[in-house]
Simulated assay, not measured.
Amino acid sequence: MKMRKLFPLLFLGFFFVFFMLIAGSSSSTTHTASEEGQNLPEVVLRWKDKVTKEATKNEIPEAVPYLLGIIMAESGGNSEKYPDIMQCSESQGKQPNSIQDPNESIEVGVKYFADMWKGHRDYDVLNIVQAYNFGGGFLSNSGKSYSLDNAIQFSKTQAGGKTITYTNPIAVSLGYDYRYAYGNMFYAQIVKQYITSTSNNNSQGNAAIVKAALKELDEGTHEGGTKYWQWYGFNGRVEWCAIFVSYNAEKVGVKMERFAYCPTGIENFKAKNQWLEGGNLPKSGNIIFFDWDGDSISDHVGIVEKVENEVVYTLEGNSGDMIAKQNYKKNSPYIMGYGTP
C-alpha cells in the first residue's frame, strides 16, 4: 500500500575489520571478518553441515545463517585455536572454554540458541542473537522488537555503569568507542553483518523466506500488522505490506535491505540488477510488486510462494489488513515486476 518514505535506509560500506569480541562476561576471541557482500570464509563454512544437522534436529533450520554468524563472531571458525567455537561452555554452568570438541560446542550452542528461539517465536531474531551473548534473562527485558538501546541499557544495568574502551568498527560506526563491562551490547549488530555477508541469493534462501511467511500465516492473521510495524520501529500503524516482506527476509537472512515504501524496494532491486519485469515468470521467493491504479507507482508488495501453469501464487501482508494467500495470472496488468534477491 502507498505510504511516504519516512527515513533513508542506512547501510555499512565495504570494509575489512579486525576486532576483539568479548563473548559473555569474560571470554574473548580475536579474528578477521570477511568483506561485506562476500561469503563467510571457508574456515567457518566448513562447519555448515554440522550446524545444519543440529539446527534441523532442534527444529530451527531457518536459523542456520545466524548460527554461522555466531561462529564467525565467537571464534572465526578457528577450532584449532578455539575448540569451543561457539563459546557456549558457560551456558552449561562451566568455566569458559571448558568444551574441547568443536562438534560438541556446536551441539550445545545450537541447542542453547534453539531453546531461546522456540520459547520466543514472536520475538525479533536479533533479540535471540543478543541473548546468546547476554544470557536468556535479557529476553525478559528486551521486548519483542530488537532495539540496540535496550541492549545498551541492559548491559549498563548489569555492569553497574562501568565501561571499557571498545573500538570495534561496528561500535564506532554507531558512534561509540566504549561498551559497558557486561557481555557485548553490540553483539547482535556484529553477528548481523555476517548475515548480510552470507549469500542467500539462491533457492535455499528463496525457500526459507516462503517458509517463514507461511509460518506467519499459520500462526494467525496478525490483523492490523502491529507485530510488523512495531518491529520496523514505527510507533503507530502504517501500511505494512513492505514491512511484512522485510520482516520475513531479515528473519531468515535473505540479503535484502529493509524497506517500508514499495517504490524504495523497487529502487533497491534495480540498483543491484535484481529486477525482473512483469510478464515474466518469477521464482518462488521472489518479491512481487503491484500497481493497482496504473500510475507506475507501486502500491503493494508480497512474496511469490510458487508458480504453476503460468499462475503466480503469493503470500501478502496487509491484504485486507491481514496476511493472505492470493494468485494472479502471469500477464496480470497489476504486476509491475519482481525483485530477485
Results as ranks from 00 to 15, higher is better:
residue 137 G to F: 02
residue 56 T to Y: 09
residue 94 K to I: 07
residue 117 W to Y: 15
residue 170 I to Y: 02
residue 51 V to D: 06
residue 210 V to I: 11
residue 311 V to S: 06
residue 30 T to L: 14
residue 191 V to A: 00
residue 160 G to R: 03
residue 321 D to E: 13
residue 108 V to S: 07
residue 134 F to L: 01
residue 116 M to S: 03
residue 30 T to Y: 14
residue 41 P to A: 03
residue 74 E to V: 13
residue 52 T to E: 15
residue 34 S to P: 13
residue 84 D to E: 14
residue 249 A to P: 11
residue 121 R to M: 13
residue 313 Y to I: 07
residue 320 G to N: 05
residue 215 K to V: 14
residue 216 E to W: 11
residue 3 M to H: 09
residue 185 M to R: 05
residue 222 H to Y: 13
residue 133 N to D: 11
residue 96 P to E: 08
residue 170 I to H: 00
residue 118 K to H: 09
residue 227 K to T: 14
residue 257 E to T: 11
residue 277 E to W: 04
residue 245 V to R: 04
residue 302 G to S: 12
residue 200 N to I: 04
residue 171 A to S: 01
residue 33 A to Y: 13
residue 279 G to W: 10
residue 239 E to K: 15
residue 240 W to K: 01
residue 301 V to W: 06
residue 203 S to V: 09
residue 248 N to Y: 10
residue 326 Q to K: 14
residue 31 H to K: 10
residue 311 V to H: 02
residue 5 K to F: 11
residue 61 P to E: 04
residue 312 V to Y: 02
residue 118 K to G: 00
residue 146 Y to M: 08
residue 322 M to T: 15
residue 117 W to A: 04
residue 177 D to E: 06
residue 3 M to N: 15
residue 231 W to S: 11
residue 63 A to N: 07
residue 338 Y to T: 03
residue 314 T to G: 03
residue 124 D to E: 04
residue 79 S to V: 13
residue 180 Y to I: 03
residue 304 V to S: 05
residue 267 E to W: 15
residue 152 I to C: 03
residue 230 Q to R: 12
residue 120 H to E: 03
residue 136 G to H: 10
residue 173 S to Y: 07
residue 87 Q to N: 12
residue 183 G to V: 07
residue 99 I to V: 11
residue 117 W to L: 13
residue 234 F to M: 11
residue 207 A to Q: 13
residue 256 M to N: 08
residue 87 Q to G: 10
residue 154 F to L: 06
residue 69 G to V: 07
residue 326 Q to M: 15
residue 4 R to Q: 15
residue 104 E to S: 11
residue 272 K to Y: 06
residue 211 K to I: 00
residue 111 K to L: 06
residue 260 A to V: 05
residue 288 I to K: 01
residue 339 G to P: 07
residue 224 G to F: 04
residue 66 Y to S: 03
residue 98 S to D: 13
residue 262 C to K: 03
residue 316 E to R: 00
residue 44 V to M: 01
residue 48 K to S: 07
residue 52 T to P: 08
residue 113 F to S: 01
residue 310 E to L: 09
residue 215 K to A: 13
residue 72 M to G: 00
residue 73 A to K: 08
residue 160 G to H: 00
residue 335 I to W: 00
residue 249 A to R: 15
residue 257 E to H: 12
residue 239 E to P: 10
residue 328 Y to N: 02
residue 7 F to N: 11
residue 209 I to V: 14
residue 305 E to M: 09
residue 165 T to N: 06
residue 60 I to D: 00
residue 199 S to Y: 10
residue 161 G to C: 05
residue 188 A to I: 02
residue 167 T to I: 09
residue 108 V to C: 01
residue 106 I to M: 08
residue 325 K to H: 14
residue 3 M to I: 14
residue 278 G to D: 01
residue 312 V to H: 06
residue 322 M to W: 00
residue 181 A to E: 14
residue 115 D to F: 02
residue 95 Q to N: 15
residue 61 P to D: 00
residue 146 Y to L: 09
residue 219 E to Q: 12
residue 324 A to R: 12
residue 11 F to N: 14
residue 87 Q to T: 10
residue 326 Q to W: 14
residue 10 L to F: 10
residue 60 I to P: 01
residue 171 A to M: 06
residue 51 V to I: 12
residue 203 S to M: 13
residue 264 T to Q: 13
residue 58 N to V: 09
residue 197 S to L: 06
residue 62 E to V: 04
residue 223 E to R: 10
residue 173 S to F: 04
residue 55 A to Y: 05
residue 13 G to W: 12
residue 250 E to T: 08
residue 191 V to D: 04
residue 175 G to S: 05
residue 327 N to S: 15
